[in-house]
Simulated scan of single mutants.
Amino acid sequence: MLTLVHEDIYVYIDKIEEQIQSFSGTSEFVLNNVAYGSIVDQGVIEINATSGAYTSLTLSTGTETLSINQPLSAGDKIVVDLRERFYTLNEAPFLLDGFLELEDDKDNTLALSLTGTGTTEVKYKRNQIVENQMDLYFCTGIDISDNTEIIKRTNVKGETKIYKTAKKEYQWSINGLWNDTEIQKFNSSSGLFRLRLVDEDGVEMEKLANCIISSFQKNSSDSGDYTYTLNGTFEKIFD
């Protein structure tokens, strides 16, 4: 561990990258979506029938079940977009009465079951944390803010009323990065990453989920070199 923010906090950047589970089988499949310390990406499931015929399929989390009563023959493809709750058979959309909701900060398991006889190929695409074991080389500080949105409204009498809502805005900034090599650690294909803060004993303190970079600054340092400051937002804090 090298970060040394105030000499006792270390910062790890865990990228969020697309992960794909691929299967080939007959009728029973188990899909995993690990979201410990992060916001779950519901993902997209592709089901391709390569032989035989099926009358229906179900997806279950153990507490919720999504039933899809669509016949599936060799060459047919069903796409179940859990992100957008959008479903297609051979690119033609169809409607369902319900939906599934995977949970944050949990190892989610989806059981896929097809009724019928044949073989299928299944792909489950979702963005997921790729934990990084190399922390930042050095930075002089990290700031985290948690602000509750305040709304002001003026009534017909011209009086201003202030309303505090449940909506929160989370912001982060990292100061004093030594070089642009360290900045490359923040890049991910999804544009998202998680900041993980660890104390000097190796105990995880906080995880800032779904971070993005909103601004970048370059400053001259006392030694005459440049240092860098990154600012951005995130969606949720996990302890």
Rank of each mutant, 00 (worst) to 15 (best):
V5E: 13
I13T: 15
E17V: 12
I20N: 09
I20H: 05
G25F: 03
F29H: 06
V40E: 00
Q42V: 01
I45M: 08
A49P: 04
G52Y: 07
T55G: 04
S60L: 05
T61H: 05
G62V: 10
N69Q: 09
G75N: 13
K77H: 00
D81N: 14
L82W: 01
L82K: 03
Y87F: 14
E101V: 07
D104F: 01
K106E: 15
T109N: 13
L110N: 09
T115I: 01
T119H: 11
K123D: 14
N127W: 03
I129G: 01
I129H: 00
Q133C: 01
Q133N: 08
M134D: 12
M134H: 12
T140K: 08
G141W: 03
I144N: 01
D146V: 09
K161Q: 15
Y170S: 09
Q171F: 12
N175K: 13
N175T: 15
N179I: 02
I183T: 14
S188W: 12
L192T: 07
L197D: 01
E200P: 01
V203H: 11
L208Y: 11
I213E: 14
S215D: 14
N219G: 12
S223R: 08
D225S: 13
Y228G: 09
T229Q: 13
L230E: 00
G232A: 04
I237Y: 05
